[in-house]
Design a binder for these strands. Sequence first.
DNA 1: GTCTATATGGAGATAGAC
DNA 2: GTCTATCTCCATATAGAC
Lengths: 182, 182
Amino acid sequence: MKGRAAALPALGELFRERGFEGASLVEIGERTGLGKGSLYHFFPGGKQEMAAGVLGEIADWFEEAVYRPLREDEDPRAAIGAMVRTVTDYFQSGLRICLVGAFAIDSVRDRFPGPIRDYFADWIAALATALTRMGHDGPAARALAEESVAAIQGALILARALDDPSVFSRNIARIEARLLER
Amino acid sequence: MKGRAAALPALGELFRERGFEGASLVEIGERTGLGKGSLYHFFPGGKQEMAAGVLGEIADWFEEAVYRPLREDEDPRAAIGAMVRTVTDYFQSGLRICLVGAFAIDSVRDRFPGPIRDYFADWIAALATALTRMGHDGPAARALAEESVAAIQGALILARALDDPSVFSRNIARIEARLLER
DNA sequence: GTCTATATGGAGATAGAC
DNA sequence: GTCTATCTCCATATAGAC
């Protein structure tokens, strides 16, 4: 316990709340329960390495919980339904932002271009795979997948801007309906 | 010239590029052509007042260029088409982020809750007005307006994450088609 | 591995001459 | 109104004892 892996979830939450620049090492120490000495022991590269670790953990989690089921579940409709429930829970109906999406429109984007690109490219590709197995042709599947992933991100922005989680719920329901129609 | 009003566009671009926290007073001075003395003369409240000024200018611009035409144009379909062209130009096909959207998922959101909420609430309300005059009933118009504004924000995130402006173009085309169908 | 103390730099903001 | 000089504070990061 109290190692590098145990610190990553706390780091992720803090970056969500304060942003990369806004998260100070003092608060990082408080939230992870690690002193500066330990932090730089586990993350010699400092904040940059901490954020990279968080992005890696997020990528792993989505691969297991979202992308792989979309690609491999034998029932693509069920996999899409599961995706909707999983991300609704993950983003806490809009109360929790998408760290990768936030980074994408922040100046830190230039520090992590690969992980940010892959997160969305992998999501779109996995969703398109499921849609293809539902009978959509390739281009239509890709278009609908891209549209749906974008819509989720937009719903997160709108829910926070309006301070109203029901915005997220309504939008995710519309997205699911469009993904499952036909 | 060189006054407060002339500084706001440069401030907006800088906040877009660096974020609120990331924009330093030194760079603000360089980009606006104003020294610290002048900056604090025009903005006694410092960075906070600068950002508030930028948000106010954005609100005014959207009111004139987007919201009012949506509400008042006698041809709602034409007004929606104009909105799509206007925002495509404004966001430079996804190369330029939405500062209000970025603030909404940043920690600075708590500094400007009113302007952030109003920007999106006004946009959705104006678009819903146009849709109502196209024949949608009230709830359907509001739902489609909310979905469309969210989709634009999501398209901006995705275009930057994938570093591909064509993502924005494809998404905005789909949004327009859905707004104008029927 | 974890602690405390510290180095170093840059941040936002202010003072006061001009 | 604009300039330069300066204040204060806190940021990230490091060093070295334990």
